[in-house]
Design a binder for these strands. Structure first.
Lengths: 341, 341
DNA sequence: TGTGTTCTCGTAAACGTTTACGGAAAAACG
DNA sequence: CGTTTTTCCGTAAACGTTTACGAGAACACA
């Protein structure tokens, strides 16, 4: 069934070296014999054994994506990543690279799994997501000299790796601008705890925009909770207990927004009427929720493609003639106005 | 950096054969030397090179999951699969297996990608989803003698592979029973076109239940459309044009239901008031839609775990002492009553 | 014809494992 | 003490590639 390079050689009565060179498009092989090799490869249904190539070349031709389910996602995971993965995979496939998706158990920090991937040389590079402000995964990879790229920025790693991130800072500021223009002055911000980096970026933009409008940043209107529905549900009442409660809330995450809306509903507060609600990262849930949530939308699939390009461009073996380059990009989020603000 | 089995051997001044046997827990190695080997492996930070093992053993220690994005999923893909993948991956990891996620472009039938995985021996087995009634992927894999398991049943392949499916037939019947008990007699069914197998199963259950209640099956109340929101939007008006329009609609897919509800809204028909709406496979969207959609919920993560077990049990190399077994299971869907019916 | 160059190909080593085989040493047994 | 068994380990081949090296043949040129 599985025909090897030896089979081709025997069939054509030439050496395996010549077969290999012919298949790999090397120059030092007669045009005629190359034709015969390619033809035999087709008829004998040959395709190269990956393990053999990997062993010899020291490259696995696959990239690992570390997908970390959120703790508390009992039923449904992270739809956010699917379109990103589609883009990533499509671009990698163009270079003959496979995508390995490595998942940790919800809540574990992946160090263990990451280590395994690196040490067993299962992949040629990894892609990280949910970057933290200080990210030990990044420290580990840079220290190990292992190629990687990140979806999201981090303070770790001395910027020596490609990264693609969304402009949470601008989105936070845009959200404030919009709410202020609509007459709001008491604007709350709810973001994830842990030290997920985008939470900080969002908050920076939020703070700066408030100051720009001459509005004092009130710590009572800023809260952080677990990055899931329960977290939003739990933490939203905190900002509502302020002496001067908010008239608008910006949520940094769709799940937290949904939990927050539930809490609001129980207080008799209707988003879109009694409270303006804005969500920073749009998902289908925002669209179908009632009222439909105004949110900032990322271009996930193109981002996946782009990060694949950036990752490959950073690896000498894959970079083009102009040599490896480290790129860092920040992409905009697009406002989708709906009914909740 | 990367220490090999030779490094260990040199360091301990023994042969690589002994090192390998010690690491693999073979019997013919002195307990003392084994200790020393394991210790050296730890201090030298050894971990086996996967390519080397794969090449020698003829096994890659990874399983491929073929994820096919739906055509028309421009923005967000298939959240359905994430929890399934989590379960699958967790179970595979217990046996030291990695999960490779292979995606095709939306709309292509994966034959090409599947072929590549099989022929380059990138994975030891594959997991298929979205099984069709007659499925060429299954035909190909059985004919190639490549191990695989499916999420979903099919007519293809002579049942010689493990499969795990949801009981769409019973869910269809249960949905009818519930609606009949609530006084409905004109019940429509909307399912995906293509020949996705679960659409047929659902329709079988629907028909049988209607007959059981002495209700004639009216072809005008059955329609099929593309399995996305646009499909539901397009096809729902068809059943509404019946001389005797339905008072209830069962949708076989969440996205189609959302599109259908949009169409209904444009006709001034309110789900939960003027029309009972039931969805067969629950997703978070059903829960957050307004009105919240009554739906049948699968236990996705356990299903992923189970299918991993079943797949491994079917492969001689991984099956336990009792030898390989082909299992086929059908799991129930649990009704989640909400506001739409 | 002699020399140098260019094409083309075969040989063999190497990548890091696993494992069948055999042999030396130790232990057991008579 | 001789023989058999057991324990332990080294040797070497094998998995399927890629590639450095060298060599033979053909060719060009003087």
């Amino acid at each position: 069934m599985a025909s090897s390079i030896h089979d081709l050689a025997r069939h054509l009565n030439i050496s395996i070296g010549t077969v290999s060179r012919a298949l790999n498009g090397r120059a030092d092989v007669n045009a005629d014999t190359r034709q015969r090799v390619l033809e035999a490869a087709r008829t004998l249904n040959y395709s190269p054994n990956q393990s053999g190539r990997s062993l010899r070349q020291g490259a696995t031709h696959s990239i690992a994506f570390m997908l970390q389910p959120h703790p508390g996602d009992q039923q449904y995971g992270e739809p956010f990543f699917i379109p990103f993965l589609i883009g990533l995979q499509a671009k990698l496939a163009e270079s003959g690279l496979d995508l390995i998706v490595v998942m940790g158990a919800p809540g574990d920090y992946q160090q263990e799994r990451l280590r395994r991937v690196v040490e067993t040389r299962r992949a040629d590079a990894v892609v990280l997501a949910w970057t933290r402000r200080e990210d030990e995964r990044i420290d580990y990879l840079t220290q190990a000299g292992f190629p990687f790229a990140t979806l999201g920025r981090s303070r770790s790693g001395a910027k020596s790796y490609p990264s693609l991130d969304l402009d949470f800072e601008k989105a936070g500021a845009d959200a404030v601008d919009r709410l202020v223009a609509r007459g709001h002055r008491r604007i709350a911000a709810i973001r994830p705890s842990l030290n997920l980096n985008f939470g900080y970026l969002f908050l920076d933009g939020y703070r700066k925009a408030l100051r720009r409008h001459g509005i004092e940043v009130d710590p009572e209107l800023i809260a952080s909770g677990f990055i899931n529905e329960a977290g939003g549900y739990e933490v939203t009442p905190q900002v509502m207990r302020s002496k001067d409660p908010p008239t608008a809330i910006i949520f940094n995450n769709d799940a937290m927004a949904l939990g927050g809306c539930k809490a609001l509903a129980e207080m008799g507060i209707r988003p879109g009427h009694d409270m303006a609600v804005t969500v920073i990262v749009d998902t289908p849930l925002c669209r179908y929720f009632s009222p439909a949530l105004t949110a900032f939308r990322p271009a996930l699939e193109p981002m996946g493609q782009r990060l694949a390009e950036m990752l490959l461009a950073s690896i000498p073996a894959f970079a083009g003639p102009e040599g490896p380059r480290i790129m860092r990009e920040v992409w905009p989020l697009e406002l989708v106005a709906r009914d909740s603000d």
